[in-house]
């Protein structure tokens, strides 16, 4: 009996397939709570953009569309390397797994560095909501509201990325010890699902924040 119950199979499960299905469903349930978490922010965005469409355009014009687009590409590329990590784990290719996890960590880091430069520019231009906010032009108060949404939404997204990068580092360390193989790669798959979700949020944030009324 102990032969059929390897160390990576938790006792409550009949077999590795059942364990795999349970962990996958678990992360999906978590992700729908995340949809509702970010959904609240998107709902607020929709309500206030409906009230102040002109201010939303003015605020959006101050954002750097090039940096936003580059970051979108960086994040999509990181999703590819994450997908390739899961692929390598499924085939038990240890080296490829470690390499793709590192690439994903690196690309996540690039995203955050670019984001930090964008934030820094906004501080320099007095576009951070609060005491020092200053916007030359009409609807200054409403533009400040736009920037509250901008910083909250991109900030919560960035925090999710920081957490993701932390988990990826742990995965990378585990993968170096050869913990993952074709019968057990649940942590890689589950982290992948989380990482792709964070990518998904950005896919909606980018057009909604950067691309309003550019024409």
């Amino acid at each position: 009996m102990s032969d059929s119950h390897p160390s990576y199979l938790a006792h409550q499960f009949d077999d590795v397939e059942q364990q795999r299905q349970a962990s996958t469903m678990g992360i999906w349930l978590f992700l729908i709570t995340e949809v509702m978490f970010f959904g609240g922010l998107f709902t607020g965005y929709i309500v206030y953009r409906g009230m102040y469409p002109e201010a939303w355009k003015l605020g959006s014009h101050e954002l750097n569309i090039l940096l936003g687009a580059i970051n979108t590409a960086v994040l999509i590329l990181s999703s590819l390397t994450m997908a390739l990590s899961v692929h390598a784990a499924q085939l038990g290719e240890q080296k490829k797994l470690s390499r793709n996890l590192l690439a994903t960590i690196g690309l996540g880091g690039v995203f955050l560095v670019i984001k930090a430069f964008e934030y820094k520019a906004k501080f320099g231009h007095h576009l951070v909501p609060g005491e020092h906010f200053h916007f030359e032009g009409p609807f200054s108060n409403q533009v400040q509201l736009f920037y509250s949404f901008y910083f909250t939404m991109t900030g919560m997204h960035a925090i999710h990325m920081v957490i993701g990068i932390g988990i990826l580092f742990w995965l990378w360390a585990q993968s170096r010890k050869g913990k993952f193989h074709k019968d057990y790669y649940n942590p890689v798959e589950v982290t992948g699902l989380y990482w792709h979700f964070v990518d998904l949020v950005w896919i909606f944030l980018f057009p909604l924040l950067y691309l309003i009324g550019r024409h």
């Binding site: 469903m25 999906w28 992700l31 729908i32 949809v35 509702m36 959904g39 998107f42 709902t43």
Partner: peptide, 14 residues
């Protein structure tokens, strides 16, 4: 079903 339900809940909220 689980993934699709998130879209439904979001639509209800909005």
């Amino acid at each position: 079903l689980i993934a699709g339900s998130s879209v439904v809940w979001f639509m209800v909220m909005v």
